[in-house]
Computed example of a mutant assay.
Amino acid sequence: MTDDEELSVADLVGKRLLRVTTAWHHHAEDEPSLLHLWLHLEGLGPVLFHTPGTGLSLRTDQPHEPYSMEQDGHVTVTNDSPNVPVARFVGQTIRSVREIRYRGVGIDFAAGLTLQFPGASIRLLALDDDLLLACDQHLGPVEASLHEDVTLARVVQTCHGFPSQWDAWTTGGQYLYLRYRRGEGSVEQHPSEDTDAWDGAGSRLWTTWDDGTGGGIIDLADFLAMAGLRLAPEAEISGTSG
């Protein structure tokens, strides 16, 4: 990777977090606000998460030096930042990256990402030009407008073991291919179940993990728990022998 190279969310899946760097904006008497976040990822280097406007931008970029912002305060840069929520995941591998959308009256935009690690997940949000990190906390009224397409309306098991695999559709209509083989689970997004359409821009890796068992059989409930997915209350579940 070269500096200033734009990244897709799929580039982050399966990468190990090595360290965290943050840049904080100090202005007058206000509490410092998070301006930039760099996640140093194995195989990618430092990845900058920032808010150039609406939504969240990702690119490879070296952390900046501290600098002044003329009449608008100054910026400090902290390497190996221990006090930000994402620092708790240093040494862990990103299992899944999912888009978070903000939906309101006449408004619909990509507001951030959920990064799922083996033990828990964290949301990186770009709201009102601010960068917010949230592990477990509820963000108040804004929560009603934040949506992840992780609820499955229909699941069809196409193979029961070696591998265990399913075709699945979210409540938002997105097709997902679920697969578990040799202890490795994966979730792929594709335009449809038609494999001839799997090479285009509508395809990407959502989730990957290796549980170390080498197994080829897993039940749906355990797979969904590992993948960060869930069933809708009225989900249609069916299957055929494979």
Rank of each mutant, 00 (worst) to 15 (best):
H25T: 14
H27D: 14
R88S: 14
S8R: 03
R16D: 13
L37Q: 03
Q71A: 13
G119R: 02
R98H: 12
G106D: 00
R98T: 15
Q116A: 09
S121E: 11
I100H: 06
G112T: 10
L131C: 00
L41T: 03
D129L: 09
T60F: 00
F89K: 09
K15A: 15
F117L: 00
W38E: 08
S8C: 07
A87F: 10
R95N: 11
F109V: 08
S121M: 03
N79H: 15
L35H: 09
W24C: 12
S121A: 13
E99S: 10
E6T: 10
G91H: 10
Y67H: 07
L41A: 02
L18A: 10
H36S: 10
R16Q: 13
V105I: 12
A23M: 00
H36K: 11
F89D: 14
S121C: 05
L115W: 09
D129K: 07
E65H: 07
H50G: 05
S68I: 13
R98G: 14
Q92T: 15
V84L: 12
D108M: 06
L127S: 04
T54H: 02
H36Q: 07
S33A: 14
W38A: 02
G14N: 07
L17I: 04
I107S: 05
A10H: 08
I107N: 06
G14Y: 10
E5Q: 00
F49G: 03
S81Y: 07
R16M: 11
Q137Y: 01
T21P: 01
Y102H: 15
F89S: 06
H50A: 01
D128M: 04
L17S: 06
L56T: 11
L39F: 02
F49A: 04
H27W: 12
A10Y: 00
S96Y: 08
T51I: 04
F49C: 03
V13I: 15
A110R: 11
R88K: 13
V9P: 02
L37M: 10
A23T: 01
A87K: 01
I122D: 03
Q71W: 08
L18R: 03
D80K: 07
S33M: 13
H64E: 12
G104E: 10
Q92Y: 05
L35G: 10
A10Q: 09
